[in-house]
């Protein structure tokens, strides 16, 4: 089974992410934790909530975290897809999920997720990373801690550095 970084540890990935193309061909399997696209979630929410196994939702760039806000208490996981690492919209989405909506479940970066972006992703609220399959996930783990200093606050500590120093 594929690996994923969750809370700083490399673990087995127990979630299966289904794309909208896949969901045109098949139904959501009865067993196992799944991640579905936002549109699918909005269309099938009640049925999905009845599943015994967990369901998470994946946001694509251009979709609004606000559309998921009311459902967040029922969700253990929200994934944010990065079709290309250079598309930085997902950083604002993660931050919004954490600070505006107070989401405390897993926020998972999926797609073009690479070592050199993990630190920033972590700071804006991602706590899980599906590193791109062709990359060494052990090495990618180094990407979580390149800096011991940060000027701004972030979702973990909203205080900028000068407020932390004097505290």
């Amino acid at each position: 089974m594929a690996k994923v970084i969750v809370n700083g540890e490399i673990v087995e990935n127990t979630w299966r992410r289904l794309t909208s193309e896949e969901l045109e061909q098949q139904d959501v399997p009865a067993e196992g934790a799944v991640i579905v696209p936002l549109a699918y979630w909005l269309a099938h929410r009640d049925a999905l909530l009845e599943r015994a196994a967990p369901v998470g939702v994946c946001l694509e760039p251009g979709e609004e975290p606000a559309d998921l806000a009311a459902d967040l208490p029922a969700l253990p996981l929200v994934a944010v897809n990065f079709p290309a690492f250079k598309d930085g919209r997902g950083y604002s989405y993660a931050r919004e999920l954490r600070t505006r909506y107070g989401f405390e479940g897993e926020v998972r970066a999926v797609g073009d997720v690479l070592q050199d972006q993990l630190f920033y992703m972590h700071r804006v609220g991602f706590n899980a990373f599906e590193v791109r399959a062709d990359r060494d996930i052990e090495e990618a783990l180094n990407g979580l801690r390149p800096f011991s200093v940060t000027y701004q606050g972030d979702v973990h500590d909203e205080r900028p550095i000068y407020r932390r120093q004097s505290a």
């Binding site: 930085g88 950083y91 972006q117 630190f119 000027y151």
Partner: peptide, 8 residues
């Protein structure tokens, strides 16, 4: 500087 939300 290294604002994590606005690097991309």
């Amino acid at each position: 500087t290294f604002n994590p939300e606005f690097a991309y």
